[in-house]
Design a protein around this nucleic acid. Structure first.
Length: 221
DNA sequence: GGAGCGATGTCCT
DNA sequence: GGACATCGCTCCG
């Protein structure tokens, strides 16, 4: 299977790089203007790119969860609009970063049209570029297993130095953003759907998507 | 390898 | 004052 099928004839995506014959485009806002479960599934295989102090850090999305709007008891939007979750009610394609358990950040991308809440939680990446820097940001010893870098929502934010103060509200559809999402044409072969994990409310909903047999997912279950 | 648990800041009632 | 979309460390087998 060609890793390049998918984006070549997509005129809606503006190419931002053509190194080594590979067409890389930023994922456009219209991509996110859909239901969270559609977007979560479609985000698998896309690349999160982080410009960090002149260096490029990147990882491929291998696991994501959908959170629906005000009718989803597990979603932050469930309680209605507050200062904390305001991003969720705004336009699609914006990073929603929040602080959890007193020590970790989690990265979400807002979905649905402007005015409608909904988002996708990025749960795991396969690290692609800048593994050495990721290892240091994670405070892991050199030569640690790559899977420890970004296999989990808190871990990947630490590995990419993603924080609420720096990244909540960032537009990930702009190539110039220090945090944006790219499509390099990769298409995952087998996508598996499971219940969401790590939550107490509405946990039975099958809204977690992962690339089957990928060793960088947070857990196989 | 799996279950149990503590650490710790922010938001909302 | 409690909940929390986590992680890494113990302790036990």
């Amino acid at each position: 299977m060609s890793p390049f099928s998918g984006s070549l004839n997509s005129s809606r995506m503006s190419p931002i790089a053509r190194s080594s014959g590979k067409v890389v485009s930023v994922v456009p806002r219209s991509f996110y203007e859909r239901a969270p479960d559609i977007v979560a599934r479609a985000l698998l295989g896309k690349v999160i790119a982080r410009q960090w102090k002149g260096e490029r850090l990147a990882g491929r999305i291998v696991e994501a969860e959908a959170y629906f709007g005000e009718q989803d008891p597990a979603a932050h939007a469930y309680i209605g609009r507050t200062a904390r979750n305001a991003v969720l009610f705004g336009p699609p394609g914006i990073a929603y970063v929040y602080f959890i358990y007193g020590m970790y950040y989690c990265l979400n991308i807002s979905c649905e049209p402007d005015g409608q809440a909904g988002c996708v939680l990025i749960r795991a990446l396969e690290p692609v570029e800048g593994l050495g820097t990721m290892t240091r940001l994670r405070k892991l010893p050199p030569n640690s297993k790559p899977r420890l870098l970004t296999s989990g929502p808190g871990r990947l934010c630490q590995a990419l130095d993603i924080t609420r103060s720096a990244h909540n509200g960032v537009d990930v559809t702009q190539p110039s953003s220090a945090l944006h999402i790219e499509d390099d044409g990769y298409e995952p072969e087998n996508i598996r759907t499971t219940p969401r994990i790590g939550i107490r409310h509405a946990a039975e909903l099958p809204a977690r998507f992962l690339i089957d047999k990928n060793k960088f997912v947070s857990t196989d279950k």
